[in-house]
Design a protein around this nucleic acid. Structure first.
Lengths: 340, 340
DNA sequence: CTGAAAGCGCTTACAG
DNA sequence: CTGAAAGCGCTTACAG
């Protein structure tokens, strides 16, 4: 009892024109008289016609959809980025599909193959996770070979796709230097990760700042990490250190979740923030201003990288020149947790 | 200088079989000998072949992709739901596309039309926002008319699609009753919303509990809301009430963001939680256990509703009977913010 | 178990 | 400005 879907032919018949003309109207071709266009649109409206995108994608060899793949949609910064990207992409007449990589190489590979099979018009990949595993790098090369690709967050060695990224090393160096200038005591750095490229970069930046203060280097400490950079892990690290937290003047965390978890652990043993310990996170997630104490963080402008990334992407789509590697500055937001 | 994409014909030629056979191999048809299958797969592998999904969707009249539309991906509960849904959907051989509705009717309508045009195999819509605006309801009817649709979170009047939802009214009644039994004083309820169906339901539940305690009704108060149910708004409400917060024994919030923002406002004027005021949120987002004080909340099992929702969806896809309306119980998680 | 061939619903080069 | 017709890359009913 399935009614046949109304197709372009039905519109053509009802409007008394050819399917070619209907197609031209739907695709905003300028070579259609206003009168014809109007007549066709009336029928489209009346029959509630929804063109089959698989047919147009097949015919064109390319869809009008752009993929947005992010490391994890449970991290608010990526959600902000997705929304900034979507706003601009739809304003350019494309639609979007969102891929949540769940911080997993396998999921990334799966999604990249899907993107190729969908013949997407382009792909924006945003992640701080390492992309140099063989499988992952291969998947990206495959994508780049068949659709325009832009990576936000890092530049991999041998990448032949444009990148937009923050100055994480420099921002981290500055942030750590500010912590040290506020409390001239040893620094705790949480945490260097085996799976996160950005975490490694941020730790290097903090260590570079420490390098300027030889007297503090001995007492300072870097925690290494295996698991995810989550609230739980930050809490576990803080609890594990316990009273030893008092040996440090400040904690530099490579993300906000770790900072927040650690702050909770500190409060449980009555270590006061910022009185006994300064705490700085990274990412500036929305909840930070509403915590007690409110948490300081290094922030990065999602709108800005979205704009620059799409500028490169649409240039590629239109076969025009684009910037290979754009670097955007981060800024440090001081709140209660780092107040002097 | 574009190299032509390798297609099914190329595989067929190289493997010395027909395209029909290649297609059968790719679709796991059982009527292919192991030897043929092996030969074909070797070529697929060697040429790095990625089938064009637009062609197969066009031919089949239906894609192998299921849409997941949620009220907002910036709310952690929906992210949990998305991941639970995706895990089960991929295990059944389908892929997923995620739609972020951004709490906007217009975005919902846009995404629903896209879903129809993509000829999706099915759609799971999860939202607590009101769905009874004419445009929204119409869009859902259109979807339901062309693809299997399941709604998680609420049952709209006149819905002819299956629904899975929590017992929000009853859970709210119980939760408010527990607050009152812990502090026999007036209750503050935050907040009734014009745009959120679930917020309204939760407020009704809380009021039902209050109804059992006539002595407390006079002093109790419901805050109404126009904007989003965000940290900022919770904070603004708390700040606005200021010292008047002390008139209440407990605050029942219709979501966690409001609760968290309000708790911060209370702490700024030295109202102690739970000493002076109990605070309860709704949704049980991940950060709650790591706050100081940790926040209590009413939680709902995302895995559970994902399972029930997909059970209905796949039954529809296979033309089998399914439950029209499933109701799942919520539970109340007490942490420091409601401890006696 | 395998192949030849039709056809899904669009778009576009070509002709008028 | 408009139309007739070919063709995008798959899948599947049919025949063998």
């Amino acid at each position: 009892m399935m009614v046949k879907k109304t197709g372009l032919v039905d519109i053509a018949r009802e409007a008394g024109v050819s399917t070619a003309t209907v197609s031209r109207v739907l695709n905003d071709s300028e070579k259609v008289t206003a009168k014809t266009r109007e007549r066709v649109l009336a029928v489209v409206e009346r029959l509630n016609f929804r063109p089959d995108l698989s047919a147009s994608t097949l015919r064109r060899g390319r869809s009008k959809t752009i993929g947005i793949a992010v490391a994890s949609i449970s991290q608010p910064w990526y959600v902000k980025l997705i929304r900034a990207l979507r706003a601009e992409i739809t304003s350019r007449g494309y639609t979007t599909v969102v891929y949540d990589l769940e911080h997993s190489d396998d999921v990334l590979i799966e999604h990249m193959e899907n993107a190729i099979s969908l013949r997407l018009a382009g792909m924006v990949l945003a992640t701080g996770d390492r992309l140099d595993a063989a499988g992952v790098h291969g998947a990206l090369e495959n994508v780049a070979a068949s659709i325009p690709l832009v990576v936000i967050g890092q530049r991999t060695a041998g990448a032949n796709w444009p990148t937009v990224r923050f100055d994480d090393f420099e921002a981290s160096r500055r942030a750590a230097a500010e912590l040290i200038s506020r409390r001239a005591r040893p620094l705790l750095v949480i945490a260097r990760s085996t799976t996160s490229h950005l975490a490694q970069l941020r730790v290097s930046g903090a260590l570079a700042a420490l390098h300027e203060h030889p007297a503090l280097q001995g007492g300072s400490h870097v925690v290494d990490l295996e698991g995810p950079m989550s609230f739980e892990v930050g809490y576990a690290i803080g609890s594990g250190l316990g009273e030893r937290l008092r040996q440090f003047g400040a904690v530099f965390c490579v993300n906000d979740e770790l900072a927040l978890g650690l702050a909770r652990a500190a409060s449980e043993i009555d270590i006061r923030i910022p009185g006994d310990l300064l705490v700085l996170g990274y990412g500036d997630i929305d909840v930070l201003p509403f915590l007690t104490p409110s948490l300081s963080s290094v922030s990065g402008d999602a709108q800005h990288v979205a704009r620059d990334g799409l500028s490169a992407l649409f240039s590629m789509i239109q076969d025009q020149p684009y910037a290979e590697d754009v670097i955007v500055e981060r800024s440090i937001i001081h709140r209660e947790s780092t107040s002097c």
